[in-house]
Design a protein around this nucleic acid. Structure first.
Lengths: 157, 157
DNA sequence: CTATATATTGGAATAATATTGCTCAATAGC
DNA sequence: GCTATTGAGCAATATTATTCCAATATATAG
């Protein structure tokens, strides 16, 4: 399946507003409602859209602390990775976790929690308990300069 | 405004599926459609829900490289920060950017691009061009273990 | 513990919105 | 230049959301 200019516009618009009405979407991308609806369905069925989600106001919900944790393991064996992945996936505080390249850290984990006290407990009870974790370094977000989910599609033909 | 159990359930459900129908949402949270609709509207108006967005399949859209950039500045003056913020906010490749605590790095920036070639150009033409940038360190995502937008509300009474 | 006030619910009617079938037009390939 | 294929637009249908109102539940004060 090949994406044309209209498909890209649809994806861009849905990234900005996932609950836009089909009518307004159609207008924005220069289509009438019915082909627009069909295209959206196609894009969904073809797997270009993975999900629709609501984004919440974190500070209103008392989630005041965002932290990045750089974590290193003693050995890079399949069981070490598997154990780590399993724990991390079970933590609701963890919003992102990546195996990354680079110097000493193996994982980069992003965590959203109410406050520093909560964070400290989380780190001690969850992260440092994981078999094979040798190094942990925390960075805390002081200010969010950009916090999007929208990706750029300008590279597509 | 105080959130009760039902409100939290609504927020959780909408974080999972931002396009759930009001009927199904009502059923999930144990309400009939009309009060459910009212509550969602209230939550929106009160600012608990910041937006609804579509999340896209990055690899299908040829966005194969996610990178974290640790960036340090020569001086921590308001004009340095302002200049940096302005550039970074104008880059569609940048999905997240934070001013963080910690050792040498001042900013952590998350970037999503097609490939390494694109990344290299981006780094050279955009990031390193910013006034005051002294250090840049890149980490590349090899595997995504967790990639959510959903935050945990379990800490709320 | 009772009475009153307040807020919230559920159901029905209404309004808005999405979806689908059909016809017509445009475009690409032969 | 003709045919095949695809997509657009219209209209009808179906789905879904929203609003009003009566009734219930909850909280408050006496």
């Amino acid at each position: 399946m090949e994406l044309d200019r209209t498909d890209k516009r649809i994806l861009d618009a849905l990234q900005k507003n996932g609950r836009i009405s089909n009518q307004e979407l159609a207008e924005q991308v220069g289509l009438s409602p019915s082909p627009c609806s069909r295209r959206v369905k196609q894009l969904e069925d073809a797997g270009y859209i993975s999900s629709y989600v609501a984004r919440l106001n974190q500070s209103k919900l008392d989630l005041k602390l965002t932290a990045f944790i750089q974590i290193s393991l003693d050995r890079h064996t399949p069981d070490r990775f598997a154990a780590f992945d399993k724990v991390v996936r079970s933590c609701p505080e963890v919003v992102e976790a990546y195996l990354v390249t680079g110097q000493s850290a193996d994982y980069t984990v992003k965590v959203i929690v109410p406050d520093m006290e909560y964070y400290q407990e989380f780190l001690l009870n969850k992260i440092t308990q994981i078999e094979g974790v040798t190094g942990v370094h925390s960075s805390f977000v002081m200010r969010k300069v950009v916090d999007n989910t929208q990706v750029s599609l300008s590279h597509l033909a």
